[in-house]
Design a protein around this nucleic acid. Structure first.
Lengths: 333, 333
DNA sequence: CTGAAAGCGCTTACAG
DNA sequence: CTGAAAGCGCTTACAG
C-alpha cells in the first residue's frame, strides 16, 4: 500500500541501509548511487514514516506546548511565533491545554511519559507547575514563557515587567499625574509584583509615595478594572490616572471612569499593559505597555530547539523589552 | 533506562503479549493475572511508548489541524473547541499554519505523507486547497471548518451565513433603516456571497432593492471598512446603516462614520459579523451576528473523530446557527 | 562505499 | 487463558 524504504531499496537495487544513508545525507555514499536512489525516491513519492523514524531514533522531532487557555487575547501571537519557529526547524507542534482541569493535566503528563514529544514549551502553568517540575527533573527539556511565578529552575523567556511599570509611571508623571490608581494582576504572580514595583519606585523617585489604598489587587479581568475604579470613587478618594496590569482590566477601568461621567484622559488618564488588538478599539484608544508576545514565542522555541540540538540549557531568563505605546487614553505632554 | 513492556512482562512473570492484552483490556485475560500485571504497571510507572504503539498499529491517535493564521481574532475559540474535544477522546493535536507561504504548505504535506497524524481539521485554506484535496483523495480523512469556498467533496462545519445576513437585515429594517451600505468580505468566499444574499433578499422582501453602489467589496480588514464609508461619503451617497461582513471591518466603518462627525447609531447604525471580543469594546459597542466558533471547533473535531473511529464520513455540511447580538451601535426599536 | 542483522517498543495473527 | 514469533518501518553499529 504505502511505499516504504524497502520498496525504494528494491527499486534502486540497493540495501535499505544505503537508502537510509542518502535520506540522512551521510557522507559515505557514492555520488552515482545516491543520485539513483534520490531519483527512485522522487519517482515513488517516498516519504519516511515519522513514527518509524521516531521509534528508531528515540526522538520524535516534535515539541509539546502547554497553555492554560487558547482564548486569551495575546495567546495567538505567542502561538504564531512558536509555530513558525518550530516548523522552520522541521519540528511538529503538539498542543495541550489546561482547560479541563485535573483531567487535562493527567492527559498531558501521560503524553509526556509516552514520549510523544522531545521538549516542552509552557505558558504560565499555575496549577500544573508541580507536575511540570517533576517531569523536568526527570529529564524533559522545557522552557517557560512569561514565567509568572519565577522558577529559576527552568530556562524562560520574560519581558521587562519592572521597566514596563516604570515607563508607565514616567509617562504619567511627565503629563502631571500625581494621584494614580494601580489595578494590579494577582499578586501571587511575579509579573504583577514587578510591574507594581517598577511603577511605585519611579513615582517614589519623583517624590510621590503611592498610598496603599490606591493599589487594588485585580485578577486581569475587565470586571476587576471596573470594580477597582468604582470602589475608589465610592470612598471618595481622588485620582487622576489608572495604571492597570493588563489591557482587559484597563478597558474595564476606562469604561467605569467614563460611566461615572468623568473624561478620559482629561480627568483621568488610563494606561494598560500588553497591547492586545482590542487596545486600539477602546474609546478612547488605550495607551499601554506593549509586550512582544510573538517574539517571546519565537525566542522560547529557539531556546528549546537549541537545547534539543545539543546545546546546554540556557542559564538565566531571556529578557525581552517592553515598549510604551501612546494613544489617546493617556496622551503625551 | 525507560521502562518498557518487556520490563513489565519480566517483573510480572508473563509474556509481553499478555501485558499488551491487559493494556488494551482484551477480554481473554485471567482476572488474577490481569490484576498482577496492573500492579506491576503501576509500580514501575509504565506508560506505553506512543511511537511504538503508533508504528505497530498503523495510526497515531493524533489529528492535525491546519489554519491560515493563529492571530485572527476568533481563531482561539475554534482552537479551544478542537483541543478540548480531541483531548477528551485521547487524541493529540498537531498544529500547522500557512503563515510562511509555500514553505508551510510543503512542510505540511510532508507531514501528511509521513503519516504524522490520522486525520485533518482545516480552517479556510485559500491557497492550500489544491494540496488538501489531493491528500484527501489519497485517503486522508479531513473536515473543513467554516468552508469559505464551498467544497462539497469535504465534510464540513459551517454557520448559517445566509440567515445571519437576513437577521441583520431584519434588525435594521425593524428600526427603520432603508438605505444600508454593505461592506462585504472578499466575494470569492462563499460565506461573503451568502451573507450578502441573505441581507439583500430580506431587504427586497420588504420592498427595498439595494443598489449596487451601496455594496462595496472589502477584505475583512478594518481599513476596508473605513475606506468603504469614506468612498460613499465622498460620492455624497446617503446611507443610514452599515452591514459589514466581519467585526473588524465593522469597527473600521464605525470609526469612519464617527470621524466624519456623524452619530452612531442615530445617523448611521452599524452591524458586524462574528462577535469577536473586540465587539464589546468599540464605541459604541457593536451589534453583530455571532458565529459559534467554539462549537464549530468542537463539532468539526467530533465529526473527524467519529470518522476515524470507523463511522462513514458525514454527508453534507453540519450547519450551526448564528445569533444576532444587539448592542448600542444598532439598538433595537 | 555497501550490506546483513539487530534493535527501537509495541501489536497481532497463530498455535496451543 | 497464554506465549513465541513475525511484523510495523526505520536506524545504526559492525563487518567487509
Amino acid at each position: 500500500m504505502r511505499v516504504t524504504i524497502a520498496d525504494v531499496a528494491r527499486a534502486a537495487g540497493v540495501s535499505k541501509t544505503t537508502v537510509s544513508r542518502v535520506l540522512n545525507t551521510k557522507a559515505e555514499v557514492d555520488r552515482a548511487t545516491a543520485a539513483r536512489v534520490r531519483e527512485v525516491i522522487d519517482e515513488l513519492g517516498y516519504v519516511p514514516s515519522s513514527r518509524a523514524v521516531g521509534l528508531a531514533r528515540g526522538r520524535s522531532r516534535t515539541v509539546g506546548m502547554l497553555v492554560p487557555s487558547l482564548t486569551w487575547p495575546w495567546m495567538g501571537e505567542v502561538l504564531q511565533g512558536v509555530v513558525d519557529t518550530v516548523e522552520a526547524a522541521g519540528y511538529g507542534l503538539l498542543l495541550f491545554t489546561c482547560n479541563r482541569g485535573v483531567e487535562s493535566v493527567e492527559w498531558f503528563t501521560g503524553q509526556v511519559s509516552a514520549r510523544a514529544f522531545d521538549g516542552l514549551l509552557v505558558v504560565e502553568p499555575e496549577n500544573t507547575l508541580a507536575a511540570i517540575t517533576l517531569l523536568h527533573r526527570k529529564g524533559l527539556p522545557a522552557v517557560l514563557i512569561d514565567d509568572r511565578g519565577h522558577h529559576p529552575e527552568f530556562p524562560s523567556v520574560v519581558t521587562t515587567n519592572h521597566d514596563g511599570g516604570a515607563s508607565a509611571a514616567r509617562h504619567l508623571l511627565v503629563t502631571g499625574r500625581t494621584r494614580p490608581l494601580v489595578v494590579t494582576g494577582p499578586l501571587r504572580f511575579g509579573c504583577a509584583r514587578e510591574r507594581l514595583a517598577g511603577f511605585r519606585t519611579t513615582y517614589a523617585e519623583h517624590g510621590v509615595e503611592i498610598p496603599s489604598e490606591m493599589v487594588i489587587e485585580g485578577d486581569f479581568t475587565e470586571r476587576s478594572g471596573s470594580l477597582a475604579v468604582q470602589q475608589l470613587m465610592r470612598h471618595g478618594t481622588g485620582f487622576d490616572a489608572v495604571f492597570a496590569h493588563n489591557d482587559l482590566s484597563a478597558a474595564g477601568a476606562l469604561r467605569a471612569v467614563r460611566a461615572a461621567g468623568r473624561n478620559v484622559p482629561d480627568d483621568v488618564a488610563v494606561v494598560g499593559f500588553d497591547d492586545i488588538p482590542m487596545a486600539r478599539h477602546t474609546e478612547p484608544p488605550l495607551t499601554t505597555v506593549r509586550q512582544p508576545m510573538r517574539l517571546m514565542g519565537e525566542s522560547a522555541a529557539r531556546l528549546l530547539l537549541e537545547h534539543l540540538g545539543g546545546a546546554p540549557p540556557a542559564a538565566g531568563p531571556t529578557i525581552l523589552p517592553t515598549e510604551l505605546v501612546v494613544r489617546r487614553s493617556a496622551p503625551g505632554p
